[in-house]
Simulated assay, not measured.
Amino acid sequence: MIDWNVARSTARRLMRPGPELSGAEVQDVVAELREASRVAEGPVREFTGLVPAYPTPVLVVDRPRWADANLASFEVLLRPLDAKLTAEGKMPTGLPGAVGSRVTGAEFGAIVAFLGGKVLGQFDPFAEGEAGPGRLLLVAPNIVHVERELDVDPSDFRRWVCLHEETHRAQFTAVPWMRDHMLAKVDEMMQATDIGGGAVTGMVTEALPELVRIVRGESDKSLSDLFQNEQQRAIVDQITGMMSLLEGHADVVMDDIGPDIVPSVAEIRRKFTKRRGSGSALSKVVRRLLGYEAKMRQYSDGAKFVRSVTDQVGKDGFDAVWAEASHLPTRAEIADPRSWVARVHG
C-alpha cells in the first residue's frame, strides 16, 4: 500500500534544515539533553507514582533520524491494514500497485517532513528494545530552534521538554497494559477500514463541502476525520480520549514539577502557549488539514481534565485511570470530567 523507501527518501528530501550549530555546539546540546532527561526521571516518578518496569533508551536525534524512526513505527502499525486488503483481494498489483504505492509513499513522506520540523520530543512505544518496547526520542534541532525563537533560557527549556517526555515514558512503561491497548485500538481502526466498491468515491463526494470549511478555518475536523466510517469514528473517539489524557497529564506534570528544577517555567509556559497559536496563514491551513490543531487541543483539554478530576477526588482518585483500560476517559468525558468521576467512582 505504501512504498516505505519512497516515503523515507521523500521525507529526507523535503525536510527543512535545522538551526546552524558548530560541531562543539552539537555535542553540548546532545550531552545536556541526555542529562536533562536523567534529571527529570526521578521527579516525574515521585510526582506521578508511575515506576517504569524496565529501562528504555534515550536517543537524541536530528530531523532525518526522527523521520526514519517514525516511518518505521508507521510501517509496523499499518501492517494489519496491508494484510486485510491483501486477504480481501483489494490490494492493487502489477503496475497500478507499484505506481500507487510510490504515490502514497511520497504523500506520507511529505507529511512526515512537515511534522519533522515541529516535534520536540516523543516516546515511541512501538520500537522493540533489548529490555522491552519503547524509546525516547529528543529532536535536538527542533528544541534549539524553539528555545531561540522564544528567547528563553536553553537549559531550563531543555529540562522542561524532558519533563513532558519523561512523563510519557513513565505512562507506557509503568502501566503494563497501555502499549497493548493502544496497539489494539489501532488494529481495530485498520480492521474497520472500508476500501473498495463505491466506498472511497462516496466518502470523497460527502467530504468536499467539509474540506472547504477546514481550509477556511470554519471546522475543527481534519482530513482523516472526513474519511472515517461510523465504526472508525467511535474508535477514534476512544483514542482521542486516551491521547488527551496522556498529553494533558504530561503538561500538568511539567508545569507542577517545573518550579523545582526549571526556574523560568512560568515564562516558558507563557511564551510557548502563545507560540502554539501563531504561524503563517498557509501553515495554519496545513496544520488544520493534518489534524495538528486538534492535536494541540489535546494538551489543554487533557490538562483541564486532569486538574478537574484531581480537584474532585484527589490524586489517588485520579490514579484510577491507570488501573485498567476501561477506566480511560472517552472523548466526551475529557470535556466533562464529572461524568468520568461518576462512571469510575460512582
Rank of each mutant, 00 (worst) to 15 (best):
M254V: 06
G116F: 02
T240A: 13
G277T: 00
E247S: 10
W340V: 03
R65L: 09
A24N: 12
S280T: 15
D220G: 14
K90D: 11
R269H: 07
L183M: 15
L223F: 08
T205P: 05
L289M: 13
L115E: 11
N229C: 13
V58G: 04
L282W: 11
L77N: 00
V341T: 05
D151P: 02
I143M: 10
S280M: 11
E166A: 10
R148G: 12
K90H: 14
H181L: 11
A106N: 00
A31E: 15
A192T: 06
A250N: 02
V30Q: 10
K90P: 04
V99P: 05
V344L: 01
I235G: 05
V215Y: 03
E210A: 13
L246C: 13
V6M: 09
K274N: 12
V265E: 01
S222I: 11
R102T: 06
T93I: 09
Q228N: 10
A325S: 15
G109Y: 00
V58N: 02
G277F: 00
D316I: 03
L59F: 08
W160N: 03
S300L: 05
A67C: 09
D156Q: 02
F108E: 01
D260N: 12
P92V: 08
G116H: 00
T330Q: 11
V58L: 02
F305A: 05
E88W: 09
L95G: 08
W340H: 02
M203Q: 15
V139G: 00
G49T: 04
V152E: 00
K185F: 13
A294N: 13
T104Q: 07
A266V: 14
T93Q: 13
V285A: 14
T104S: 11
L50R: 01
R179D: 11
L50E: 01
R45T: 15
S300D: 04
W160P: 00
G314P: 05
S278I: 06
R343P: 07
L59Y: 10
Q238D: 15
L211A: 10
L21D: 07
P52K: 02
W322Y: 15
S283C: 06
V215S: 05
E32L: 10
L150W: 02
M243E: 12
L71V: 00
E107V: 11
V26E: 08
Q191W: 06
A323V: 10
K304D: 14
V236I: 14
T173H: 12
E230R: 15
M91V: 12
H345L: 14
S264P: 12
V51K: 09
K221T: 11
G196S: 11
W4R: 09
G105D: 00
R158S: 08
R8Y: 05
S278C: 07
I261Y: 03
G196H: 02
P92G: 10
V309H: 01
F272Y: 12
W4Q: 07
R275H: 13
S308A: 15
G100S: 09
Q238V: 15
T56S: 08
G291M: 07
S224H: 12
W66C: 01
L328R: 02
G23Y: 08
G217F: 01
G197T: 11
F227W: 04
M182G: 15
